[in-house]
Design a protein around this nucleic acid. Structure first.
Lengths: 212, 212
DNA sequence: TGTACATCAGTGAACGCGCGTTCACTGATGTAC
DNA sequence: TGTACATCAGTGAACGCGCGTTCACTGATGTAC
């Protein structure tokens, strides 16, 4: 989803060759590594360049500043979402629906295990009002929310759970999924196993989306 | 909840007089203001001092660095939580329960309207693994999670929603409440009113905690 | 296939700024008698 | 009530470091004939 149409370009808009694409990749990877090792506040262009390793000047060939690089990472993180969308579309009746609900929860957990540092920063920046990050989060969330609402309509949940406002309910479900995926690793323990967490979340999701 | 027992002290441990407490207050207020105006990454000791206005040296009389000041703010943000706790304790049968569920949702929204910038940063720092912020978040959340679990037990939700693991369900509910409170202002629109959001969230909460 | 040239890509080194941090001092407040 | 002294509180000014940013150059790759 890293912009389907336009090829990747440098800051002057010139399209990149193989060699340049590779360098850009190394810089993005280093940015992501640093983001997961240290915090957002400690993320500096100089550190990223040191980690690659390369000169800070190379960084500025591709990105205008640290936020810009993180924005690219957040954009790349949208790539797996069509797979998630596919889980919502289709048959959610009976056992198949319960299976799909679990698959959705597991998807979120893997997704956050992989992209957590980036998504956390994206969400903070969006919450703080940064337009670019708000837009990016919107592009990620809106299709999922729509898919949930569509499912609530055709499953009859809207009638059975009458009083639930579908867009609000969809938002609530995405909040659970995001948040629990974000810290499931910290929360899992003897008192609460991975399966407890997945199972309970999947049940709430299934019930809210299908009314059963 | 700014530490009930020990009086507030400067970095050498000396308790503060009235004048010093007032200055410290001004610095914390400026920190919070800057945090809501700009982002976390733009928060500098020099900026805070300018905003007060005072000398950077004054800042260092009370706080070891920017994180330390934010940590104090996050600590103060725990103060209103006993009121929330009180909502969970008591009678949740019938109309009274539905009323309380709504009150919980409204509490969260007001709470985030007021302390949002601080709580966002607290959550990011905790997610990034900062021990001090993790502990602080734990002190805020654990009593609430316990109160929800206790309610699920005595309301019979555990039997009726059999299969829900109470700690996991409580975690899921706190995720909804936090996240929707965090961005309810951005989400409210013609298609989804404040009341839709409150009502739907309250219904999900009520159903999960009481089984009805 | 070889050579000349154009363009792409990468970076060493330098500059200047602004930040974090501290010191040494001034002024305010409290206490003793 | 007044005076001397001790302690509390606040800060101006300075220092040095490291970061962001850019320039001018070198080296790599592609293209034409």
């Amino acid at each position: 989803m890293t912009s389907r149409s336009e090829p990747i370009a440098d800051l002057s808009g010139r399209p990149l060759g193989q060699r340049a694409l590779h360098k850009r990749r190394l810089i993005l990877d280093a940015t992501r590594d640093l983001l997961s090792q240290r915090g957002l506040r400690e993320l500096r262009v100089a550190d990223i360049a040191r980690a690659v390793p390369t000169s800070p000047a190379s960084f500025y060939q591709y990105f205008s500043d640290v936020e810009d690089a993180v924005l690219q990472l957040a954009q790349e993180a949208n790539a797996p979402l069509p797979d998630l969308l596919a889980l919502f579309e289709g048959d959610w009746r009976g056992a198949e629906g319960r299976r799909r609900a679990r698959a959705v929860v597991e998807f979120f957990m893997h997704y956050w295990d992989r992209h957590g540092p980036t998504l956390r920063v994206r969400n903070l920046a969006a919450d703080e009002g940064d337009q670019r990050f708000m837009e990016l989060r919107g592009r990620a969330m809106l299709p999922i929310l729509s898919a949930m609402e569509a499912l609530m309509q055709r499953s009859g949940a809207v009638q059975k759970n009458s009083g639930l406002h579908p867009p609000a309910a969809a938002l609530a479900m995405s909040a659970i999924l995001d948040r629990l995926a974000a810290y499931h690793r910290v929360m899992e323990s003897d008192a609460m196993s991975h399966d407890d967490l997945v199972d309970t979340t999947a049940r709430i999701l299934y019930h809210t989306l299908t009314g059963k």
